[in-house]
């Protein structure tokens, strides 16, 4: 745990006169899994979108491998090619088959040869047991399958880290397990992940660290067990009471 992949320093973000992030600081090291917890509306999604420049921030700094992303010479499209993102509502492209969903980024953003990426994509699909569904359209798949395809789609970019935004919240309870299992496997293989989640079991068992977001700031963070079992802050304790 040494090399810092992503670092947010005092990040602020406002929508009109509503300041959603009031100074978030958070660092993510290589091979580390950090779970971001906090009540609904606390700004988890906003924070993740700021981290890969889908939102323009109003203050503070974001660094990827020590390089500031606010530098005017930085091309946001290039930054995003190193950062995978998975959404609560999957956001697969409904007009493209499963395989074409996965190929879109590597072929059209990274300009890699289609045949080469296709072989990789099929191998990734095989790992989640969906190789035979490569030519199906997303609406033929269950929610759990769609979300696993969405995860594979971001992995096909070979990102340096993954941002996951409540990826199991839209799923039928019977399908949550298959997605969490995939994330657990990825964590074991050393994938660097920042995971906004309400799955406390996953946070406890898989995350290295947990950060609790409230009032637009990280008010408590530390090793998963410590924060979840012995929270220092009253607000964290109250939140954990509520989600238990």
């Amino acid at each position: 745990m040494s090399e810092v992949v992503l670092e947010l320093r005092d990040v602020r973000k406002r929508f009109k006169d509503h300041e959603v992030l009031t100074g978030v600081s958070l660092a993510l090291s290589r091979h580390e899994v950090v779970c971001l917890i906090g009540s609904s509306g606390s700004g988890k999604s906003t924070l993740l979108r700021c981290a890969n420049l889908l939102e323009r921030i109003d203050g503070g700094d974001i660094e990827l491998f020590g390089q500031s992303l606010l530098d005017p010479r930085v091309d946001p499209d290039r930054v995003r090619r190193h950062i995978g993102m998975v959404f609560q509502s999957f956001n697969l492209f409904p007009h493209l088959s499963v395989i074409d969903n996965i190929l879109l980024g590597p072929v059209h953003a990274l300009k890699r040869p289609r045949a080469e990426v296709r072989a990789e994509a099929l191998e990734l699909l095989g790992r989640i047991g969906l190789a035979t569904r490569a030519d199906d359209y997303p609406d033929r798949l269950s929610g759990g399958q769609q979300q696993r395809v969405a995860i594979v789609r971001s992995l096909a970019m070979r990102p340096s880290l993954l941002l996951l935004d409540e990826v199991t919240s839209a799923l039928d309870p019977t399908l949550v397990g298959e997605v969490l299992d995939l994330l657990t496997d990825l964590a074991r293989q050393g994938t660097t992940m920042l995971v906004a989640t309400h799955e406390m079991g996953f946070a406890r068992n898989v995350a290295h660290r947990v950060a609790f977001l409230e009032g637009g700031r990280v008010i408590e963070e530390g090793p998963a067990q410590e924060v979840l079992d012995h929270p220092r802050e009253a607000a964290t304790r109250a939140f954990l009471e509520r989600v238990r």
Binding site: R49, N52, L54, D77, R78, R80, R81, I83, G84, M85, F87, S89, N91, L92, F93, P94, H95, L104, G105, H108, A109, L110, A150, R153, S154, M157
Partner: peptide, 26 residues
């Protein structure tokens, strides 16, 4: 849906490529 744009941009596709390959076909 806005999520389509977010998903495409988060893959590193430019605004133009997103329009051409994701938004307009739909």
């Amino acid at each position: 849906p806005h999520g389509q744009l977010l998903a495409s941009r988060s893959l590193g596709l430019s605004h133009g490529a997103t329009m051409r390959r994701v938004i307009l076909p739909q």
